[in-house]
Design a protein around this nucleic acid. Sequence first.
DNA 1: CCTACCGATCGGTAGG
DNA 2: CCTACCGATCGGTAGG
Lengths: 212, 212
Amino acid sequence: MTDEPLISKSDRTARAILDSAYRLFVSQGYAATSMRQIAEDAGLALGSAYNHFSSKDDIFKTIILKRHPIFVIMPLIKATKGNTIEEFIRNAARTLVAELEQNPEFINLLLIEMVEFKGQHAPLLFERVWPDLLAIAGQVAVFQDELQPIPPPLLLRAFLGMFFSYFITDILLKNLMPAAMQENALDRFVDIFLNGIKQPVDNRKLNTSESL
Amino acid sequence: MTDEPLISKSDRTARAILDSAYRLFVSQGYAATSMRQIAEDAGLALGSAYNHFSSKDDIFKTIILKRHPIFVIMPLIKATKGNTIEEFIRNAARTLVAELEQNPEFINLLLIEMVEFKGQHAPLLFERVWPDLLAIAGQVAVFQDELQPIPPPLLLRAFLGMFFSYFITDILLKNLMPAAMQENALDRFVDIFLNGIKQPVDNRKLNTSESL
DNA sequence: CCTACCGATCGGTAGG
DNA sequence: CCTACCGATCGGTAGG
C-alpha cells in the first residue's frame, strides 16, 4: 500500500522543480533564469531535472498552463458574490487586490509570456479560460438593468483592464507618487468604473454633495 | 568646417548601436539579447561596441532614459487639444492608440524594466516626467467643473490606466476574442471612462436612448 | 574599428 | 538521481 503513495516521490520532485522555476521566472524573467539555478533551488543536480522535464521550455510551458495569472483571476471573479452591480464589482476588486498584495509578482508570468514568448500561448490560455468567461458573463447579466447597454464581454474586459491598470500603475509608481495620486486609489478607480458603467437612474447615491 | 560635422561619425555609430539594441530588447527581452547580436545588427564587430558603451547594462540604461514609453506618452497627452473634457480625452486616446499601432512593441520596454530590472529605474523616470505631469494636471484643471471631484493626479493615473489596459488586453486577446469584445473597444473604454469622471449634469448627451 | 582571445556559464546529454 | 562531460555562447578585454 505504502509502495504507491498518492503523491509519488517523482511527482514531488517534479513539483519542487516547477515551484522553484516559477519563483525564479517571475523574479528574474525566463532567459535570465538558468536550468542550474532551477535545479539547485529545487535541491537537485542539473542532470536530474531532465528526468522530469525535457527542456527549460517544457518547464515554462507547464508552468504557464497551470499558473498563468488568468487562472487565478477568473475563478476569483467567478466566486464573487453581490446583490447589486456595485457590491459585485467592489467585492471582485477587493479580492483581486488582496491576492495581488499577497504575491505582487504573480502578474509577471503574464508579462514574461508577452515579451519573451511574444504571446504565443495566448490561444491555448484563452481556450481554457473560456468556460469561466461564459460563467462570469452570465453572472453579470443578472444586473443588466442597472447597467449601460455594454456587451458583457466588453464589460469584463474593461473591468480586468481597470484592475490591471490599477496595479501596474501601483507597482510602477509605488512610493514615488504624491499622496493624492495614491490614497484610496483602488476605491477611486472603482468609483470611476462603476459610475461609468451604471445607468444614470434617480436613486444613484453619488458622493458629490458639492454639485455646484 | 566639415572636419566637425554636427553629428560626428562616433555619434552616428553610438546611435546605430542604441537603435539596434532598442529593437532587439523590445522584441526579445534584455537577457535574451546578446552584445554580439546588437553589434552585428548595428554593423559592427563585438569589440567595437565597447568603444561606445562600457557594458550591456550601460546600453540599456541609456535606452530607458531616452526611450521609455512614458517619454512618448506624456508629451503626446500634453500636446492634446480639446474644448471639453470629452474632446480632450477622446483626442488623447486616439493619439496614443495611433502611436501604439505604429509600434506595438513600444510598451515592452516598460514591461522589461518591470520584470528584468524590478523597476529600479522608476525613481529617475518619475523625476524626469514630473514637469509634464504638472503641465497636464494644469490642462485638465480647466475642465474642473465638468468633472467629478477627483484629484488631477489620480485622474491622470486612471486615464493612463484605461489606455494601458486597453492595449494590454488588445495585445493579449488579439484575434481570439468574440467580436463583441473587440468592436470599437477603444470607444467603449473611453465612453466608460468619460461617463465615470463627468459630473452628471442635465445636458449630458448619452447614447442611451433606450433608457428603459 | 577589428581580430583574437579570456574565463564563465549556458542548455543539454551520456553513462552509470 | 549524480558526475562529468559536450559544443556553443555569453559579457567583456587586450593589443594593435
